[in-house]
Amino acid sequence: MNQPDLRITIGDLVFRNPVLTASGTFGYAKEFEPYVNLHHLGGVVVKGISLEPRRGNPPPRIVETAGGMLNAIGLENVGVDRFISEKMEYLREIGTRVIVNILGDSLEEYQTLAQRLSEVEGISALEVNISCPNVKKGGVAFGTDPTMAEAVTRAVWAHSSLPVIVKLSPNVTDITEIARGVEAGGAQAVSLINTLLGMAIDVRSRRPRLANVVGGLSGPAIKPIALRMVWQVAQAVKIPVIGIGGITTTEDALEFLLAGATAIEVGTANFVNPRASQEIVEGIGRYMSENRINRISEVIGGLVLS
């Protein structure tokens, strides 16, 4: 039998396979060079970039919880100028698609970022983090209001020549409403889910375990929620869905593909096992060979309900 065909398409972009790495869990890719053949991955989504460098939150920034972890890193990053001058040279040479995650506190910031990054060679797409608060709108997150989500998507899309993926927050009542808003705004794809807002308390000191008090929950603990949301969104929109949330093994990744995800992002698992992303690529290939599946499209959305 021939090698199974793992290629997937998002908009006009063809990816070698459906396995990407989630923003904020893979640095700027170089950190994983000793562990992963980066060109074996479908793509990498680099650490979220803002217009100005961000210092991030004071420590403690992370705490381990049952089957997962809470983080309140606070979007620490080098800013777009240093990202372009210091990180892109390496990223252009890694032999896989590079998706840049962007974040801002106003529509103007998103627009400027989209414009700046569109001029840079070697970037395949933008992933827009809409979980940050809109400073001008009184701190309401762009990602929790369908109209605002649509507006930020449109702003990025209108100012960029790159395909736009919008990363959705799960901290909403109905994630499909946000997904529809983003689709109407011109997104080529949605990725979900970002972390779930959580909290942990030290009972001896009675203090929160994170300096920021609350943080984002990630890891295997959130996988069933993520899978449910991906399944719902895949039915609600026509654009491709990228599944994220606790994916640690090949079987986890396959579940998301069956639920309707065109691609997946490996996140917290990169911390636990630096080779996780590559092992999942290899595992999907093996699964397809063993089950005589020629093309990954035969898996995507293949959930059997009756």
Partner: peptide, 17 residues
């Protein structure tokens, strides 16, 4: 020594001022 998720500079959890 701090809390640390990855040890390889990806999680940025081990910040010290």
């Amino acid at each position: 020594e701090t809390m640390m998720a990855c040890g390889i500079s990806a999680c940025l959890g081990c910040a010290v001022p």
